[in-house]
Amino acid sequence: MRKQPKNNIAPDAIKAWRITASIFMVILWLIIIAGIVVSVIFHFPIIYSGIGAVIGLVCIYVFVFLIPKLRYKRWRYEIFEQEIYIQHGILIVTRTIIPMIRVQHVDTEQGPILKKYNLATVSISTAATTHEIPALLEEDASQLRDRISTLARVDEDDV
């Protein structure tokens, strides 16, 4: 098996992913609180509310604290002249090789949370699918986008 790719994404990815997860957890807790209110109004057993609250606390730990660290540790990439090598996953590690000849276009994307930390995502499109390298520093993302675009163009001209 091939060695894992060398390059890591930006360490601030953990912060950005935690903020995103926190937003989803706020929504989950609003649903849990609504469930508690409904159970009090309609006199349902309080045990269901307690179970919902415990599940909510476990979700906060898993999705806000545990998963972002694990995602960061596993996300790696490397750019070669003939291919792009991406590794990601938490329980199941996926290693993807994208031939440069298949690359149709490359974009950088940046939402408000990534912008706060000066991060951007590089999106690589082929005919079949789109692959992403998330949470790179803005400057690195721009350079990577330009490099992939140049390498993909050179490969197309050779064919």
Rank of each mutant, 00 (worst) to 15 (best):
N8G: 11
M100R: 13
S39Q: 14
E156L: 06
K115G: 03
Y72H: 08
I19H: 04
P112M: 03
I133M: 05
I86K: 06
I41K: 13
I46N: 03
R18W: 07
V106W: 01
L136T: 03
V37F: 07
G56V: 00
L144I: 14
I55W: 02
W29A: 09
I31C: 11
A128H: 03
G56T: 05
A127Q: 08
I148S: 05
M100E: 05
I14Q: 09
E78T: 06
T20F: 12
I79S: 12
T96C: 13
K3Y: 06
Y48P: 03
I51T: 11
P5C: 13
T96R: 03
I124P: 01
R2Q: 07
E83T: 10
I14G: 13
I41G: 05
E132L: 05
I84Q: 02
F63I: 15
I124C: 02
H105R: 08
G52N: 09
R76A: 11
P99E: 07
K6H: 03
C59S: 13
E132N: 01
I79V: 03
W29D: 08
V159M: 12
K15A: 12
I148F: 00
I90P: 01
I23E: 00
S49M: 09
R74H: 14
I23T: 05
A120G: 02
I148P: 11
D140C: 07
Y77M: 04
I32E: 01
S125N: 01
E81F: 03
I90V: 12
I9K: 01
K3I: 07
L28Q: 09
V38F: 13
V38Y: 15
C59T: 15
S39N: 14
R71K: 08
D146H: 08
I98N: 01
A53N: 08
P45A: 09
P112L: 04
K6C: 00
R102G: 02
R2L: 09
D146G: 08
A13E: 14
E132R: 03
K3P: 15
T20D: 11
Q104C: 08
D12G: 03
I47A: 14
S49K: 09
A127L: 08
I36G: 09
P45G: 09
E109K: 13
L137S: 14
Q87V: 14
L66T: 15
P134Y: 00
Y85M: 05
L57R: 04
L30T: 08
Q110T: 09
H105T: 03
P68N: 04
Q4V: 04
I41R: 11
I98Q: 01
I92D: 12
G89V: 07
I51L: 05
I148C: 10
I32M: 14
T126M: 06
Q110N: 10
V159P: 15
P5K: 01
Q4A: 12
V62N: 04
L114S: 15
S142W: 06
V62C: 12
I41E: 02
V62R: 12
G89T: 09
T126C: 02
A16S: 00
E83H: 02
D157P: 00
I86H: 00
P68A: 00
V38E: 04
E78K: 11
R147H: 08
G52H: 07
I67M: 11
I90Q: 02
A135F: 06
I90L: 04
S49N: 05
I101D: 15
P68M: 00
S125L: 01
I60E: 07
E132I: 07
V154S: 08
A135R: 04
S123Q: 05
P5A: 00
I79Y: 04
I98M: 12
Y77L: 04
R102Y: 06
P11C: 10
